[in-house]
């Protein structure tokens, strides 16, 4: 038997999450994200032009396809809800839809909660979630929590990890 440290409910051995309060029940020693030197990332400066007007209407793309890093791993996601990009860390309640751990996320400076892609008023946008090493579109760094439009063919960069964007 094991006991939830948070609400004291008991569970059978090997249980992963407390069924009462949802707490992760395994010990964990994952590492946090180290800041990278700015030279390593190669950013060009923050976006200069005013951010584009978001389209008022229209349905826009239904899905997004991402080509990730050197491995060229490809994933496809519907845009019916926000897609979070980061690194899985159950102990701190981080379950990104797109876990970049296997793409060298930690070494490349990807935060656990790094950025999210979502559709707003028919336009696909990306928002930096206060990541340590920043989110970039075509080399331009985004201000945290300020969503910017994402276009087909854009180069998205999380820390040093490059992601190519395809909208469908």
């Amino acid at each position: 038997m094991i006991k939830c440290p948070f609400c004291q409910t008991t569970h059978v051995a090997n249980t992963l999450f407390c069924s009462e309060c949802g707490t992760y029940l395994l010990e964990d020693d994952r590492r946090g994200t180290d800041p990278l030197g700015t030279g390593e990332i190669g950013w060009v400066g923050t976006e200069e032009e005013g951010s584009e007007h978001l389209a008022q209407h229209g349905s826009g793309p239904l899905g997004v396809r991402l080509h990730i890093g050197e491995s060229g791993r490809q994933v496809e996601a519907p845009l019916s809800k926000a897609i979070h990009l980061g690194r899985l860390d159950p102990a701190s309640d981080v379950f990104p839809e797109l876990d970049l751990s296997e793409d060298g996320g930690l070494e490349k400076g990807v935060s656990r909660r790094h950025a999210r892609i979502l559709k707003r008023e028919g336009t696909v946008v990306v928002e930096d979630l206060g990541s340590i090493n920043g989110t970039f579109i075509n080399g331009k760094r985004l201000a945290p929590y300020l969503p910017e439009a994402l276009h087909d063919g854009d180069q998205l960069q999380l820390g040093k990890l490059l992601i190519e964007v395809e909208l469908s």
Binding site: R65, L66, Q74, V75, E76, A77, P78, S80, E97
Partner: peptide
């Protein structure tokens, strides 16, 4: 809908 996850594309 929380579990909507990206799908891996294999070539």
């Amino acid at each position: 809908a929380l579990s909507i996850l990206p799908k891996e594309i294999h070539h």
